[in-house]
Design a protein around this nucleic acid. Structure first.
Length: 561
RNA sequence: GCGCCCGUAGCUCAGCUGGAUAGAGUACCUGACUACGAAUCAGGGGGUCGCACGUUCGAAUCGUGCCGGGCGCGCCA
């Protein structure tokens, strides 16, 4: 509908060019927006104001000229010139309702596109170190990252989900030492407890499992504990596998699945790290100072150079990161998106600098990053900081246990990643109008219920039966619900372009509200069969849109609640 | 001190590739179940869009400078 209006305006502008009233040079594509105020019609354009200067005509006069040259059509019923030169379009009810037929025809495909042309995109997210259960922050990353993947899939991209984990560094040594301490019967309060040891009670579980010689199957490996209390290497191997399995279970409970788990250690085994370092040295982007090797990241926009190889030997964390991203590039991913916590934002400059230093033709802005800000968990008006299992932080599992998967997913994706998030446990638990998740799901379940009712009322019945009678839907609630449905594709397209799934969450809230208003204002199934069938068509179209939108967020669309 | 993010109703947040009278939920106050699910709906009050200057026909939105909050600024990862 909007596209049709855009086309009409373009034709009018062309006519003005031919007449010489507008210069021939290319003009901007018409910007047509939905109006906020119904008095301003349904759609509006600022075209006349934008072009007034070039035409050398007052905006309102130009607006009049554009209107006079609009081709004859059945979409626009009236045009007004308003304010400084807006053109307001009133759209015919029939063309507004045409969206119902489109949605019913496309069903689950409504809102999808082929924009990605099947091109491959890799999305790396969560990437938690295997040193403890996933916390709320990882949960936010999982929810947003997965929703971004779903948005891209919806837009025709071939998406590869990847989880990168550090299975070798200092923090993993600390993990092994902590498990060893538990094996030796120490408590975190003990003097001999390792500095920087992990204090959560789960470490005790790892120690017990190790002593019991348990077998652990993580996503990518199987490890059998020897039970040898002095073999630190074996303890480390087992602890990493045990925690990987733990995280896998958290992710499964959240319905987030990865195509590949990438081990940092593999970069050392394959000499990828060494090759990366050699390449940077060869390209003369490094220098030795104070017995350390430095990368000239200042050549690529950093505010100071960074150490690559420490005085004591060993590489700093971002070096394998550069090697890892080179590996992504070599795997053929021309588009890579990294979703991570904003506390890691300083790595962006370093990784990109390292990649530029390799001089392999990797574009400057590659890879893309989506950073999410911190999450604060509130309950009973107070911040929740502790978890029984993890000790010093709230885990993703805690959230799922408290409020369920759907509410957790919704709340973690409903806000812009750039904003800090307050997760209100009491709100997410409430089964009432306070809770937007149930509000949306309730609309869906209500429609399912109506459809069953229709069967008992009309017997054999199909959603398309109402299409010939759509002209019966003239009430404002019916019209504005149809209008909302027609906005879905552009909402999803915008969310995909900006990698902002929260736009979908907010949109669904609005659609559900439109539906509930419609439902309360009109009896859907009544004695007039044609009206009933038309309303059922509209309701079923709404059902498709809600289901499609919830699928992008990874939230279920229940038939009964 | 430097970098990134944020500052919009009592609270939680949308709106930010500039557009007309700034929105939603919640909280508070009124109403609506002898109609298909009241996990719902209808209505009301509630705002210096942090402050200032600038660009513009037009600024919550763009620019600059302040103020306030968060996160980073390691030869930790």
């Amino acid at each position: 509908m909007k596209d049709q209006v855009v086309t009409l305006i373009e034709q009018a502008i062309e006519a003005l060019k031919v007449e010489g009233l507008l210069p021939k040079e290319t003009t901007p594509a018409p910007q047509v927006d939905h109006t906020r105020n119904p008095e301003h019609g349904d759609l509006a354009t600022n075209m006349a104001m934008v072009l007034a200067k070039r035409a050398g005509v007052p905006p309102r006069d130009l607006a009049q000229a554009i209107i006079e040259r609009l081709p004859t059509n059945s979409v626009i019923t009236r045009c007004d010139i308003a304010g400084p030169g807006f053109i307001n379009f009133h759209i015919s009810q029939a063309s507004n309702l045409a969206i119902v037929e489109t949605v019913l025809a496309q069903g689950a495909k409504f809102g999808q596109s082929e924009h990605g042309e099947g091109k491959r995109v890799q999305v790396e997210f969560v990437s938690a170190n295997p040193t403890g259960p996933l916390h709320v922050g990882h949960g936010r990353g999982a929810a947003i990252g997965d929703a971004i993947c779903r948005l891209l899939e919806n837009a025709g991209w071939s998406v590869h989900r990847e989880f990168y984990y550090n299975d070798a560094g200092q923090q993993i040594s600390n993990l092994a030492l902590s498990v060893k301490a538990r094996i030796d019967g120490l408590e975190p309060s003990d003097d001999r407890w390792p500095t920087d040891g992990y204090q959560g009670s789960y470490i005790k579980d790892v120690a017990a499992a190790y002593l019991a010689k348990e077998t652990v199957n993580a996503a990518d490996r199987q490890v059998v504990a020897s039970g040898n209390a002095t073999d630190l290497d074996d303890i480390q191997l087992f602890a990493v596998a045990w925690l990987r399995r733990e995280q896998d279970e958290d992710l499964r409970a959240f319905d987030v699945n990865f195509d590949h788990y990438f081990l940092e250690s593999s970069l050392y085994k394959s000499d990828a790290v060494q090759k990366t370092v050699d390449a940077l040295i060869g390209n003369q982007h490094t220098y030795e100072l104070d017995d350390a090797l430095w990368l000239k990241t200042t050549d690529f926009g950093d505010d100071k150079d960074r150490v690559m190889r420490k005085r004591e030997g060993g590489y700093t964390y971002f070096v394998p990161d550069v090697a890892y991203h080179l590996n992504k590039w070599e795997r053929g991913f021309e588009r890579v998106i990294n979703e991570q916590g904003a506390d890691h934002h300083s790595t962006i400059t370093r990784v990109r600098a390292g990649l530029q230093g390799l001089e392999t033709g990797i574009p400057k802005g590659w890879p893309e990053y989506v950073l999410h800000q911190m999450v604060t968990v509130m309950r009973d008006q107070a911040e929740v900081k502790l978890s029984k299992r993890a000790g010093s932080y709230v885990t993703l599992r805690d959230l799922i246990d408290w409020v369920g998967r759907d509410a957790t997913r919704y709340f973690l994706t409903a806000r812009a990643a750039t904003s800090q998030l307050t997760f209100d446990i009491d709100l997410a638990r409430s089964k009432s109008n306070e809770n937007p998740v149930y509000y949306i799901q309730y609309a869906h379940a209500r429609i399912c219920s109506l459809q069953k009712k229709a069967v008992t009322h009309f017997g054999q019945w199909a959603s398309v039966d109402g299409l010939p009678h759509l002209d019966q839907l003239q009430h404002s609630e019916e019209q504005s619900l149809a209008l909302s449905l027609s906005k879905y594709p552009e909402v999803v397209a915008g969310a995909t372009l900006r990698l902002e799934p929260h736009a979908v969450a907010n949109y669904l809230r609005d659609v559900a509200a439109e539906f509930h208003s419609f439902y309360n204002a009109h009896k859907i199934i009544d004695d007039n069969q044609n009206v009933s069938l038309a309303r059922l068509s509209l309701a079923t179209a709404t059902q498709h849109v809600i289901a499609n939108g919830l699928r992008i967020l990874g939230v279920s669309a229940p038939e009964v609640m």
